[in-house]
Simulated assay, not measured.
Amino acid sequence: MRPIKLIVKTNSEKYPIIIGRNLISNLSHILKKNSISFKKCFLVLDQNIPNKYIKQIVNSLRKYELYKFIYNANEKNKNQKNVSKILDVLLKKNFSRDDCLISIGGGITGDVAGFAASLFKRGLKFVNIPTTLLSQVDSSVGGKTGINTSQGKNLIGSFYQPKIVISDVDFLKSLPFREIVCGYAEIVKHALIANKKFYNFLDKNVNEILKLKSPTIEKSIYESCKVKKSIVEKDENEKNLRKILNFGHTFAHAYEASLNFSKKLNHGEAVILGMKSAFEFSHNKKLITNKEFNSAIKHLNNSHFPDSIQNYFTLKKINQIISFMMRDKKNNSKNIKLMLIRKIGGPIIEKEFSHATIRLFLKKRLIN
């Protein structure tokens, strides 16, 4: 299958997303073809990337002055300390704004590397090579960068668009199945909020996608990126429309943070639980019909996905979950803002609810 190209046009940048197989061995050619030039190159590499892929990348970039930073990518290391380490190397090696930082890893690596690139001399050329399904369909599109703090997830960051995104599907073969599920969460989210036809495709092909079957997986990545692209182009800095991409995430981020970002629940799994919670809340408030609700819940109840928040939390955790929901970056009042759904494919609506309403909802879910 030939590579697929998608162009993202925002107010600050116009850049291509290339989706295909065996792309990294031709990395230098792809960069040149897309008019991305530099002399020095700094690679921020997720330590979990197999050596054979790193060798292909290094070999393709051999004509450049090359430096590497091996990053232990996890939510606890998504912090200012590691951003500072990257910046220190860039400064010591006398990088200029015309040089390039290349992120090679999942969404955490891309967030940290992109944030560092946005800070260095107010903007260094940034190339994103996402290596997980989650990052290929979500964090690689739209220019969000950021780090975590003790107060919550992604509370410090910037909007900084890459010069190019190169999504090599071959990377996905090295992932554990749990990471594939993690990425699928964002794929189905994009369908649920904006494309009923795409959702129907996923509903028929979910098991093929989870097995990374071609061309189904490439089509899913492309269609998912297309949904996010259309939203980001209209609202780059998340002032209005882009908020719909947070469907399920107010719950999800609170679930992750309440478990201290442990391996017990990864981001995609939290998003699946968060979407279930958002659907249940929408249904509870009579915002969605029984037919639409049942279809979505049936899809999200796939045996490969996390089942219920009861498997992760007890009643004692409710206050902590509420606290993290209050700190969500969308909130600007004493209430909690939720993105809720009326029907599959949209529209998504934003509504505020009191702590007591959210607490009662969670209590019922944890008791039943």
Rank of each mutant, 00 (worst) to 15 (best):
L119F: 04
L119N: 12
L119Q: 14
F120L: 02
F120V: 01
R122L: 02
L124N: 02
V127K: 06
N128E: 14
N128T: 11
N128F: 14
P130S: 05
T131C: 11
T131E: 05
T132W: 03
T132K: 04
L133G: 05
L134R: 03
Q136C: 15
Q136T: 10
Q136K: 10
V137E: 04
V137C: 14
D138F: 15
D138E: 12
D138Q: 08
D138N: 06
S139L: 10
S139C: 14
S140C: 12
V141P: 03
G142H: 01
G142I: 00
G142C: 04
K144Q: 00
K144G: 00
T145F: 01
G146A: 11
G146S: 13
I147D: 05
I147A: 08
N148E: 07
T149Q: 01
S150I: 15
S150E: 13
S150C: 05
S150N: 15
Q151C: 08
Q151P: 12
G152N: 04
K153F: 10
L155Q: 00
L155G: 00
I156R: 03
I156F: 05
I156E: 03
G157E: 03
G157V: 06
G157P: 09
S158A: 07
S158N: 14
F159C: 00
F159N: 00
F159E: 00
F159K: 00
Y160R: 06
Q161S: 13
Q161W: 06
Q161R: 07
P162Q: 05
P162K: 06
K163Q: 11
K163L: 10
K163R: 03
I164P: 08
I164C: 14
V165C: 04
V165Q: 01
S167L: 04
S167N: 08
S167Y: 02
S167D: 07
F171D: 15
F171G: 12
F171H: 10
L172E: 13
K173D: 15
K173L: 07
K173T: 11
S174C: 04
L175A: 12
R178E: 14
R178D: 13
E179L: 10
I180Y: 09
G183H: 11
G183E: 09
A185S: 14
E186K: 04
V188C: 13
K189Y: 03
H190Q: 14
H190W: 10
A191C: 09
A191L: 11
I193G: 01
I193L: 00
I193A: 00
I193S: 02
A194T: 12
N195Y: 12
N195Q: 10
K196L: 07
K197F: 08
K197W: 11
K197H: 12
